[in-house]
């Protein structure tokens, strides 16, 4: 979470098994739950939004969220020492390197 003038969306990650992501099972299960069937991370499905130079995934157009599966891969974002971070660490840093709060969602017992 950041104190911004115009918060644009909700960014997040969730822990996931690599095989589940790679097999397509994850997308399939999410789309079975979602009436908008917007769950994909395929770059080819990213679409422009008026006034925004960045294209966005269908989930952003539907719900203004960007949720990434974390399967142990590096994010490409580095800390101030140049060490590359995985999503869980990368999402806890703001662009200028200061710590950023996150909200952790836990599944309750049924």
């Amino acid at each position: 979470m950041e104190d911004k003038d115009h918060p644009n969306d909700i960014d997040g990650y969730f822990v996931c098994d690599l095989r589940r992501l790679a097999s397509g099972e994850l997308e399939r299960d999410l789309n079975l739950l979602d009436p908008k069937k917007c769950w994909t991370w395929d770059p080819a499905q990213r679409r422009p939004f008026p006034g925004d130079p960045k294209r966005q995934l269908p989930m952003w157009h539907s719900y203004h969220v960007e949720l990434y599966p974390h399967v142990g891969q590096l994010s490409g974002i580095t800390d101030k020492y140049g060490n590359e971070l995985e999503f869980p660490s990368a999402f806890r840093l703001s662009r200028n390197g200061t710590p950023r709060g996150i909200v952790q969602l836990l599944r309750g017992s049924p």
Partner: peptide, 27 residues
Amino acid sequence: GLSSAEVKRALDPLRSFQAQLEEEIDC
């Protein structure tokens, strides 16, 4: 041992994440 289709799906999130940076640079 992943197939090319599985590799693509596994890398899609990172590619989409990376594409944002590319577009910011272009902008």
